[in-house]
Nucleic acid binder design. Sequence first.
DNA 1: CGCTGTATTGACCTCCTTCAAATGCGGTGG
DNA 2: CCACCGCATTTGAAGGAGGTCAATACAGCG
Lengths: 238, 238
Amino acid sequence: MFSPLIRKLGRGADLTQADHDRLTSLARTRCVGARQDIIEQGDRPEDVHLVLSGFACRYKIMRNGKRQIMALLVPGDFCDLHVAILGHMDHGIATVSPCTLAELPPTTVLDLTENHPRIARALWWATLVDEAILREWLVSMGQREADQQLAHLFCELLMRLRVAGVADADGYDLPLAQHDLGEVLGITPVHVNRTVQALRAAELIVLRGRRLDIPDVERLKAFCDFDPDYLHLVQRIA
Amino acid sequence: MFSPLIRKLGRGADLTQADHDRLTSLARTRCVGARQDIIEQGDRPEDVHLVLSGFACRYKIMRNGKRQIMALLVPGDFCDLHVAILGHMDHGIATVSPCTLAELPPTTVLDLTENHPRIARALWWATLVDEAILREWLVSMGQREADQQLAHLFCELLMRLRVAGVADADGYDLPLAQHDLGEVLGITPVHVNRTVQALRAAELIVLRGRRLDIPDVERLKAFCDFDPDYLHLVQRIA
DNA sequence: CGCTGTATTGACCTCCTTCAAATGCGGTGG
DNA sequence: CCACCGCATTTGAAGGAGGTCAATACAGCG
């Protein structure tokens, strides 16, 4: 059940079976329905949360009621690794689809970081990759138009979900409504719809219900200049 | 000379004089002119770089030649703390104004993180604040219109530069041309100009040459719904 | 005093928004 | 099996924020 995490962290550091067990032995798991808050802005959560299945998101709500999604959390992603250091959440976290979460007690996390350098390094690495993704989203928002921005997101999710082991070679289940995609891209649901249709018309994607298929991945990548370098998927050399 | 760093890190953890000396004793300093690359995408820098004076920026260049600035680095900010873990730079770093930089040899950083938990924690904290700023920039780009977005940037810089000790209570030197501001906000220089003029007309800012003054800080904050929570300026309670 | 880069202005165009209505669709109950 | 409900998706028309292109003004500087 923890395999998405292990698959992901294994990219950042060599983990042994013992490391794996240490991470998982003390965790409780919890199931949460779709569109539920997991952590609210201002919280000082005790446990560290980890997505095992489903999609969650980081978000902020503006004074006018609009919501900006700042990150999509897929299986293997941590929700709040940083809160132990920063003290409180400066944003909220909610599920998008139904999720199973792991809750790691703070003592476990403390023990891991202080006594198990390999795991600590892997967690550190995971945080930095999250930051790199955030940077790329900023670039997308600033420089790409809606169609390329959406295509870029679809490419990114393909890569990330493959690492987590929950995507096929050329498609995956995408539990986001067009409304949610709008909150990710910073555009209105209406314009998401028109953008989706443009990508469909160009035969770059097949999006039906909650399933996305990409007939020609290389063509979609070329369309949005997708360069997976920022995901740091290749095993570190040093 | 290292005081901006100490002032900044002191917010994240209690540092002693000994910690301070340890950080600074082995560093070389280096002066770089305006608009020079410090680190290029793909580099695997040996030393960790730190801004002591001046403004630098993280950026990515798009295939069409446009540049998106993903972070402004002011005195006290690290350029590449993450590269030791991630292995290579997925973006470039360049100066905006002339800068003095400190270069910390990797052995120093390694020693600090492994043998000096207080400093390690402070560095960790600084990285997480950078990430929080990145999230807020994403929100700005997705949800705020150009005038509020620019105002928000000006408010953020006021707070950050005050922490670094290089701003007055209601103004600071801003070495960015309108062209640069456009690369930060993801808009064209022409539109930056119109936006600046709108803020001027509303008497929210006084921007002349490379100096920004804010006649009524509270009014500017109210104008763009600025909430400094994400900067994590208040001393951690625990 | 001319040169160069930055700031400013104007006219026009495009992408995206807004508002509003229509269509389709999965589930539920009859 | 079908009627109906609630929700997401789709469509249309009009407006606004920001982009593009090109010309002009201006400031620092040798």
